[in-house]
Design a protein around this nucleic acid. Structure first.
Length: 268
DNA sequence: CATATGTCCTGAGAGC
DNA sequence: TGCTCTCAGGACATAT
């Protein structure tokens, strides 16, 4: 999302922000919209970046928009999938397209924060999944008593891995999702480090995964492509593409679906 | 402190 | 067709 919106947004002046009329319950915006609007009108978006799964629009006033898309939130610079779930608009001076936040379920959040507030929020997150070192992985996992799959979703342990990718990563590692994190060997933690990078980088390259509900789109409202590379996610009952003999299983851990191959990912 | 659970919200698809 | 139920790329408050 950040790579997609950057060329349209970075260096541009923010003419105004708008909350589109929407029949659904409004998403969480902080501070109150009128105050937020006063603080950002006329400012320039200096930098667009991200920390884990959160998007940052940094303004020349020092304030930052912090956007959390959560499950169904999208950043868009093109026509949205539908208009009734448009939640927020940034009107940019001299830009062909404005920037939109679209969110079907409405669990996403938009926060305008000062540098200290932003740092405080980010300091609660663990190391980024693409930057964490094998030693950091080891230090954190060797003291975690939960199932490895559940630990991977804890953003203060490591930040940036979501439910779908947790299953994909563990499958490539040959690790059973119900393995207690602290029982992983050093070799398996090393493998986890490598496969996390592989899966996330590949997924980013293919612009994400558009699942059967079609919700996820890139910033131009086009399908992602990584769903074609899924080996286990949402493939219950299908044959494992790695061993070509195991069947993909679905279990629930911490109220969330996990998919794995019972042959490649033995419990031990 | 670490870990477990319910909750926020809308819509799609399954089963009856 | 229409109803009910379950499930969904997430994170947080609250309880244990």
């Amino acid at each position: 999302m950040v790579r997609g919106i950057r060329p349209w947004v970075e260096g541009r002046q923010l003419e105004d922000v708008v909350r589109p009329l929407c029949r659904c319950k409004p998403i969480a915006i902080q501070p109150a919209f009128s105050e937020l609007r006063k603080r950002v009108q006329g400012r320039v978006v200096d930098r667009v970046w991200r920390r884990a799964k959160r998007i940052v629009l940094e303004l020349n006033s020092g304030d930052s928009f912090l956007i959390e898309p959560r499950m169904t939130g999208l950043m868009l610079v093109a026509d949205p999938p539908d208009v009734q779930h448009l939640r927020f608009e940034w009107r940019l001076e001299g830009s062909q397209a404005n920037l939109w936040f679209w969110d079907r379920r409405g669990l996403g959040t938009i926060t305008l924060c000062r540098p200290e507030e932003r740092d405080a929020i980010f300091s609660r997150l663990g190391p980024d999944a693409l930057e964490i070192t094998p030693d950091q992985w080891w230090a954190r996992l060797s003291v975690a008593r939960r199932d490895i799959k559940v630990a991977l979703l804890d953003q203060k342990l490591v930040a940036g891995i979501g439910n779908l990718y947790a299953s994909e990563i563990l499958h490539l590692c040959g690790i059973h999702p119900q393995t207690r994190a602290s029982r992983l060997t050093r070799a398996r933690v090393q493998k986890l480090h490598e496969m996390t990078r592989l899966v996330l980088e590949e997924a980013i390259l293919h612009e994400g995964s558009t699942l059967s509900d079609g919700t996820y789109r890139n910033v131009l409202n086009q399908d992602g492509g990584y769903q074609n590379s899924h080996r286990v996610y949402d493939r219950e009952g299908m044959t494992c593409p790695t061993c070509a003999s195991g069947t993909i299983q679905r279990i629930v851990q911490a109220q969330r679906s996990t998919f794995f191959c019972s042959r490649c990912q033995r419990k031990r």
